[in-house]
Design a protein around this nucleic acid. Structure first.
Lengths: 169, 169
DNA sequence: TGAAAAGTTCATTTTGAATTGAACCAAGCG
DNA sequence: CGCTTGGTTCAATTCAAAATGAACTTTTCA
């Protein structure tokens, strides 16, 4: 139950706690798990890069959570390996990416694009089913709604790059 | 367990099922509960406005879910009461708002703005705590990070109205 | 080699959010 | 009135997503 035994745990100081809390709330809004917010948050307030073990110890989370959380953060481009530990150091240390452009870019690439794309293909399916409706009037209505969905997707596709550009400072 | 007894239930046809499924996935991405996707989805494919009871019967969800789901959808401006049932009709009927502009506007107003605002106030708190750090070097580092957060929030605030304008077709 | 340390994987458990359903309120109506 | 119908509320339950932790793989070094 106790993840890290009491005598080894190394609790957060008030500032760290506050920052971690901030990011926990932040990622919840984005639909990401709390552990990701904790990890990114702690990296964000830490002057020095941290290892997986550091995160486990300081946050009191399991190795499994830390490992998976880091994987996701890497895939989002929100975290990078700290350079310059080639000299016989096996452990890898992480530091946060703090440029909004990069963070938003990663989020769009990993979380939004895939959904937009799968959405588009589901709408193609829908258009087929809608075309098979027997009653002509009803078919017209339904096709109009499907057309509306296609419009939405086009708008979304158009807006994303602009969004990215605007947030790039 | 069975929400609506079998002999009263009125299952969805394949097209309806497809559309509802589409919106269920859609709202999940936005962090909203599945029942909201189901309700909006069914309204979206239906030519005629639907009542709360219609939704309960067709979707097989509880009255409670339907009531709360409609409340949220109304607050988002994603659903409106159908006009013209003044003549001795107590039941209210709902139809979906299908203009992207309106939907995005409601979502920003109800879901994003509040989080942005509470985020800003948490950052003000953070700035105070950061200013109290003893070590001058560390204080400088931490304040720089807090400054970064403020930048992010400003960017967010600047982008939202533009986003809204762009999606207004 | 093989022991130790770093990290990953995944079946099980936990937990928090969504859903249910029963009690309740309000409005019409005979 | 008192009954029916439409709708809301909220404590209890359910369920899906996240976290755990034990087993496993990989790397390094003595």
């Amino acid at each position: 139950m106790e993840q890290v035994p009491e005598e080894i745990r190394d609790d957060l100081d008030p500032l760290e706690r506050q920052v971690v809390g901030f990011f926990v709330d932040g990622v919840k809004v984005l639909g990401l798990p709390r552990s990701i917010g904790e990890i990114y948050g702690l990296l964000f307030v830490s002057r020095e890069p941290l290892s997986l073990d550091d995160l486990v110890r300081r946050l009191g989370i399991s190795k499994g959570s830390a490992s998976q959380g880091l994987r996701t953060l890497r895939s989002l481009g929100a975290v990078r390996e700290a350079a310059g530990n080639g000299n016989g150091e096996r452990r890898t240390y992480y530091e946060p990416a703090v440029e909004l452009k990069r963070l938003v870019g990663g989020f769009i690439r990993e979380q939004i694009r895939p959904h937009l794309d799968s959405g588009k293909s589901k709408i193609r399916q829908l258009a087929v089913t809608a075309g098979e409706v027997d009653d002509a009037d009803h078919r017209r209505f339904v096709s109009e709604r499907v057309e509306r969905l296609e419009q939405w997707m086009r708008s979304g596709g158009r807006v994303l790059p602009i969004l990215q550009k605007l947030l790039g400072q």
